[in-house]
Nucleic acid binder design. Sequence first.
DNA 1: ATCTTAGTCCGACAGACGTCGGACTACCGA
DNA 2: TCGGTAGTCCGACGTCTGTCGGACTAAGAT
Lengths: 117, 117
Amino acid sequence: MTARVLEHPPAEEIRLEEVLHALADPARLEIVRFLAVSGAEVPCSAIDLAVSKSTTTHHYRVLREAGVITQVYRGTSKMNGLRRADLDRLFPGLLDSVVSAVEGQRADTAPATPPTP
Amino acid sequence: MTARVLEHPPAEEIRLEEVLHALADPARLEIVRFLAVSGAEVPCSAIDLAVSKSTTTHHYRVLREAGVITQVYRGTSKMNGLRRADLDRLFPGLLDSVVSAVEGQRADTAPATPPTP
DNA sequence: ATCTTAGTCCGACAGACGTCGGACTACCGA
DNA sequence: TCGGTAGTCCGACGTCTGTCGGACTAAGAT
């Protein structure tokens, strides 16, 4: 029963187009950014995405199936981690440039002026 | 009447998600790869895409509207060039890592069996 | 046992996407 | 002037995507 174990594509099957497609969405980019800067495994609920729970599940699955993240069940939650080693080997520099790009763009979008109530 | 001049987004309006989305397609990735390795401006017809003319037009437009390429009319053809300076400034390393990734993947995918018409 | 927490699965839906053929336009060259 | 060449525009099509609510399930906490 229970799909208690999630399927992950082996490294050799990770395709660049799919990775790029997986990254080409604000919610998923935020997940990847968060995982990259935190450098840790975190449960889905740790990242605030401003979409419903079902949509959140969907985005994590897209990332996992593209080979960008790993997901393992741990107790009542599911821990998500970046497949940094695989990605760095397959596409050297890609992850870092994307993450720093999104960090930079974030600085433009969510900048200086904090909430102005 | 002629839209003899094409609209390009100014550099400040280039969004990472859109660039990634533009790159997340085999045909468009091939265009970008070609432009990057050739380092030159080439007409649409210089790159063989295995899709129809209308589809080709569509892909070039997606790239231009995302800010990835420039397009200018020159005589009877339209020259396409990478916006490398803008991209390198906005997203340092991104273009290079994507291009070398696709080159690497190409080595796996394209070999042995050449076109069999 | 029961409740809570965390996430899944199942339609559903609107909009975007990649694709095409075919008619069209702009420019060059003979 | 008349082709030919290069690319555009216009529906149209099937598919994929992001989104949701709601019912569901697994594992801990009480």
